[in-house]
Amino acid sequence: MTVPLIQFVNIKKNFETQEVLKGVHLSIYGGKITTIIGKSGTGKSVLLKHMIGLIKPDSGQILINGEPIHLLSHEKIKVFQKELSYMFQDNALFDSMTIYENIALPLSEKRYYPKNRIKDKVMYQMRELGLLGSEEKFPAQLSGGMKKRVALARALVTDPKIILFDEPTTGLDPIRKKNVHTMIKEYQEKFEFTAVIVSHDIPDIFNISQRIAMLDEGIIKFEGSKENVLNSHSTIVNAFIRGEEA
């Protein structure tokens, strides 16, 4: 049986008196696209931020390749975290930096990256994502769709093995949404990274996902393949897919 790349075991998280995660069990498998669906405010982004270490759980265990993260050496955790990349819901682009500088930032802050190599990598991503010609522009001068592509380019420029997408299509029109989904799918096939997507784009997101998990009221109510989710008899899952209250 394949060992999950990342496994959440009974993860709980409170913010002051508010219980956000009430004992999450979730497995993320390497080389696959896993999508986390669920109502707004159920803690999907909080769950995603646990994966990259931006938020620490109050209790429970996170396993990396089957090993509890707290038992891993500092070096191993560092290596694992360097393989991760995160695309924020609101892009989190640096508004005082140009598009080129934004994409180059994860590399330019590293001592061992020569400038010409950074330029090659950034220009490659910009070419691939149709951003050529915007190098000297600032984020405020770009459309919502272009900002998403810049955020994606920045997430991809370090050649990560795992990319976490926090609602990558929020605020985009249906055409741009489809483009972003296609882009994620194509890139995932090309670079074979592991993707975890938090999304509300149902049923479109099912077309690119291999695994689906549904978070509801702080726990994972469903986890399985997209075929499983579509054939599920769970009232909550079916109601959510139909856009109705359970």
């Binding site: 931020k49 990259i52 270490g53 931006l54 975290q81 360097k82 991760l84 990349s85 995160y86 924020f88 609101d90 989190a92 682009l93 640096f94 508004d95 930032l105 994860p106 802050e109 920045r154 370090t158």
Partner: peptide, 15 residues
């Protein structure tokens, strides 16, 4: 930068 998650973005880039 804090409220627009730019500081979190720096952390995710290991900066």
């Amino acid at each position: 930068m804090r409220i627009s998650e730019q500081i979190d973005a720096l952390k995710t880039m290991h900066i």
